[in-house]
């Protein structure tokens, strides 16, 4: 019933981690990617006049960078990439609901017209 040999133990318990360290390389590369994005984010502060995000494009660029970081962490570090799809659905249900409801609410305050968000 229980398998005792190391060799034919399939990848495991949690979600299919591997015996060697290849998954760890993915994690390190992901962290590097996130670090680069963070540096770009901070660069928008250090050099606000950089042509890519001058003036009205600044907020969209920041929001895109933020979203990419957010979903990268959720996808790789939180294992949604490797896990059952139902977890992704449940989490995104809450996330999408929060985003939609709160954007609708802020819209009723008409805060987008005060120049706060470009």
């Amino acid at each position: 019933m229980t398998v005792t040999s190391h060799d034919n133990v399939p990848t495991t318990v949690l979600d299919g981690a591997v015996k060697d360290y290849s998954r760890d390389k993915v994690y390190v590369m992901t962290a590097l990617f996130l670090a680069v994005l963070t540096i770009i984010e901070v660069f928008t502060y250090a050099a606000p006049d950089f042509p890519v995000w001058a003036d009205e494009l600044l907020v969209p660029v920041l929001m895109i960078l933020m979203a990419v970081k957010f979903f990268t962490i959720v996808y790789v570090f939180m294992h949604l990439k490797f896990d059952k799809p139902i977890l992704t659905k449940l989490f995104y249900m809450g996330l999408v609901l929060a985003v939609l409801v709160y954007i609708a609410m802020l819209s009723t305050f008409r805060i987008w017209h005060n120049g706060q968000h470009g």
Binding site: M1, T2, V3, T4, H6, V9, V13
Partner: peptide
């Protein structure tokens, strides 16, 4: 988790 395998590598 109920398949015929241990829960992690021993």
């Amino acid at each position: 988790l109920t398949e015929d395998r241990p829960l992690a590598l021993p």
